[in-house]
Design a binder for these strands. Sequence first.
DNA 1: ACCTGAACACCGTTCAAGT
DNA 2: ACCTGAACACCGTTCAAGT
Lengths: 228, 228
Amino acid sequence: MSRNNAGLTEDRIITEALRIIDGQGLRRLTMRRLGDALEVEAMAIYHHFPLGKEQLFDAIVAYVSDVARPAADEGGADGAGGEADSDGEEREPAAPDPRPWDERLRAWAADYRRALLAHAQALPLFIHRRPDTEAAMRSLEVLYAAFTEAGLAGADVVRAAAALDSYVTGAVVREVRAEGLPAQRPAALDGRFPHVTALREVRPDPEAVFTAGLDALLRALTAPAASA
Amino acid sequence: MSRNNAGLTEDRIITEALRIIDGQGLRRLTMRRLGDALEVEAMAIYHHFPLGKEQLFDAIVAYVSDVARPAADEGGADGAGGEADSDGEEREPAAPDPRPWDERLRAWAADYRRALLAHAQALPLFIHRRPDTEAAMRSLEVLYAAFTEAGLAGADVVRAAAALDSYVTGAVVREVRAEGLPAQRPAALDGRFPHVTALREVRPDPEAVFTAGLDALLRALTAPAASA
DNA sequence: ACCTGAACACCGTTCAAGT
DNA sequence: ACCTGAACACCGTTCAAGT
């Protein structure tokens, strides 16, 4: 009786794909391996993602980008009881966040960074894909609303949101790139690089680096004289 | 007589690989296709990159990251006359850049952004690879020297350089992600996203967005009270 | 509707061989 | 030293078929 209808859902496929990506790396995510992990023939996946692997990648990006997602069964128990049927439920204009605008922006940045770092191996997928989802729209609305409340208007709002998004994305890439490299090769540190040599031992905490840059950027973006 | 010694060099291989990546996309760069483009059997490439495709990818990242490279034969004529034998020549401590520190930082940012945008299709390679080259060290030295000249010291210098690098990297990713998406779906723009709706028509010039964010960040990083 | 199984046109890489 | 050619163990995807 377990021949057909193996209980495949998009969510189960995405979650399992992310488990493989996180554990073994993006390049080891193959349709055949994913099928094995789901205890299904690889070709069964095409029934849920008819456009193949590219469509699966799009779905993974959208999934990870949805920062506000409950984030329940990631890596813990299996996702046997979580039917995520969330249509038709959130039509109201979303209860306004009571926190001041700068706290909201900091929270957004922290959440976004955390979501990306949690699936660092999937990051290459994010470069040429932008999720066209309500969650993405919600994110943009949060940024625009906060910067407007901070006193900006028009193009300044759009520019500020772009700068903040750039910074967080780049910071995550930076943190991920730093991993797995042998600090600084002392071999190459000769007289041509005096400043690098002098600061060789300075390794500030990554989280502190992120926060310091974020603070500086937010301060500058919302300073009264910021309309260039 | 043209059976052996087809004149393969690392540089020729990298340049041709980049041409394929830029023209057809990263996924279409295969060893066989690259061999065809070089008019050589695919397996010949392994003689110059014994560790295979991964090593070739590393070399591509190092090549593109070397912003100060002459940048001659990219896409123009073929590279028949450019033997880049540059060892043992640059031992002197590099003539100091006469420009003020903020100009140097802006120039670095502009150069880096341009280099990345010129090979946007190769960007996914940059996420988990950091070139361990002299050129990379030179870049870091430029940043550290400029921020020191701006009045920072110690961890503040490292943090400022990290923030600037994050911003530029993220800005490029942002610009690349923006391509090929149909603006904003008016379908999803209902009452829940009033700010996004209001700013729908505001599409500032990408270059201006980049510069505005860069200016704001530099201002904040080098402001007297920036030592958090 | 949902999944299987065989098949096709590719991959990256190894290895022995040529010159 | 530098390149070739065949071979191996994979890929993604199509397509006809099963239930």
